Simulated scan of single mutants.
Amino acid sequence: MPIFSRRARAAAIVASPAAAALFSGCAGGVQDAVERGVEDAVEDATGDRVDLSGEIPEDFPASVPIIDGSIELAGAAASADGWVVVLTSEAADPLGDARAEVEAAGFREDPTLAQATAAGSAYTDGEFLVILAGEGGTVTYTVTPAP
C-alpha cells in the first residue's frame, strides 16, 4: 500500500471527528475560519481536496449506505484510496442506524480490523472497508479499499 494512502487515511480519521466537534460550537465568521483551517490541514497532510460544503464525493462507493443527516465534512483521497464523511443526525441512535444499514447492505463486522484501527467498528464486503465511529449525533464514515 502506498505511503500516501496511509497518510491520507490517517489524516482523515484524525481530522474528521475533530472537525465535527469544532463545528458544533462555531458560528458565522468563526465557523468559516475553522472550516478553512480544517480544509487546509487535511489538504496539507493528504495532498487531496477536502470539501466542507456538505457534498458526498462523486466517486464515493454506491455500495456503502449513508444514513440521513447533515454532511459536515466530506473528502476523498487520490486514486480512490479512501473517503471520509462526517455527518450529524437527529436520529435517536445514529451510530446504531449506520451499523444496521451497513450490515443490511451486505457488509460484515470484522472485529480484528476494528482492533487494528482503534477507531470504531470495522465492516467489510471484500471490496471495501468501512470504519464507523460516532458520538452523540455525529457519525464518521471512513471508507477504503479492503485490505
Rank of each mutant, 00 (worst) to 15 (best):
A12H: 06
G28Y: 15
G137P: 14
E135H: 11
G47W: 03
A146K: 11
G106I: 09
V85S: 04
E58A: 15
V38R: 03
Q115N: 13
A91Q: 09
A105P: 08
E109K: 12
D125G: 08
G134R: 07
A74N: 05
V14S: 08
L132N: 05
G137F: 09
T88L: 01
A45S: 06
S79P: 00
D97R: 12
E58W: 04
A18V: 07
G96W: 11
V85E: 00
S70M: 04
A122M: 07
L22I: 12
A78P: 01
E72D: 15
R7D: 15
A45M: 06
E55S: 15
Y123C: 05
L87A: 05
P2K: 10
G134T: 10
L52I: 12
P145W: 11
A98M: 02
G28F: 15
R7G: 11
Y141C: 08
F4K: 10
G37C: 09
A105T: 12
V102N: 00
D68A: 14
T144F: 07
A12L: 13
I67R: 04
E101S: 06
A118W: 00
R99P: 00
E90I: 06
A18P: 00
F60P: 02
V84Y: 05
G69V: 02
Q31Y: 11
D40S: 14
T142Q: 12
A11T: 09
A80Y: 10
G137A: 14
V38I: 14
D110V: 10
A105L: 10
G47A: 01
F60T: 08
M1H: 14
A45D: 00
L132M: 02
D68N: 14
G120Q: 02
A27Y: 06
E101I: 01
G75A: 08
V143K: 05
I13P: 01
G37Q: 13
I13S: 04
V34K: 04
D110H: 03
R6W: 09
V14D: 03
V86D: 01
E101H: 07
R49Q: 13
V30Q: 12
A116C: 00
G25D: 06
G96T: 09
T46W: 02
E72K: 13
S16P: 00
V30G: 07
L113R: 09
A12S: 12
T46Q: 00
E55F: 08
T112F: 11
T88R: 11
R99D: 02
M1W: 08
A15C: 13
F23G: 07
A146C: 13
